[in-house]
């Protein structure tokens, strides 16, 4: 199997490593870099558990993305939103609003929220529901997640320091 040497910037840190051509970004994150905060839920882009941010703004399914195509891109995972142990407002809102049950969809939901709020800082409830489509939660019925996104939007708008997408500058 042919390999390529790639450099990925994940959560602000550069990693240079060899990947087989058919390596997905999800495999590279989890298996090569041992960054297991991004989850495998279906491998077909339907559950959203593997959602990561590209260049601090756009969410993608890392299971449907080749690692080799991500050369030079800034990738943010849920772990990258936390700065010096300080929760990002989105994370804080998820904790406070009971938006987390089993937690397996949570990393993807949080990253999806980050992308949603980066594009639309004041979403309506309908915008939030539409914005979270593609990420399946089997535990919460989405109710507490939607409330958390509303709260996160308020928290971010009230704070001058933190942008929704968070990590990569």
């Amino acid at each position: 199997m042919k390999t390529r040497s790639i450099t990925l910037c994940v959560n602000g840190r550069d990693y240079t490593f060899e990947v087989p051509h058919n390596r997905t970004l999800l495999q590279a994150l989890r298996d090569d870099l041992k960054l297991t905060d991004t989850k495998y839920g279906c491998g077909s882009g339907e559950c959203g558990g593997c959602t990561v941010l590209i260049n601090g703004k756009d969410n993608i399914n890392s299971c449907l993305t080749l690692a080799a195509e991500m050369e030079g891109k800034h990738i943010t995972t849920v772990g990258g939103l936390t700065k010096n142990g300080q929760l990002h407002p989105i994370q804080q809102a998820f904790v406070e609003l009971g938006a987390i049950q089993c937690g397996f969809c949570t990393p993807g939901m949080v990253m999806k929220t980050a992308s949603l709020l980066a594009h639309n800082p004041n979403p309506s409830e309908d915008d939030i529901r539409r914005g979270l489509e593609g990420n399946i939660c089997r535990c919460t019925g989405y109710e507490n997640i939607i409330r958390a996104v509303q709260k996160a939007s308020q928290m971010i708008n009230a704070s001058a320091t933190q942008c929704a997408g968070g990590a990569c500058s």
């Binding site: 882009g45 959203g48 959602t51 756009d58 969410n59 993608i60 399914n61 449907l64 993305t65 999806k112 992308s115 949603l116 539409r130 914005g131 489509e133 593609g134 990420n135």
Partner: peptide, 9 residues
């Protein structure tokens, strides 16, 4: 079409 993630890709 799809969902926000799919629309980005």
């Amino acid at each position: 079409f799809g969902n926000p993630t799919v629309r980005n890709m």
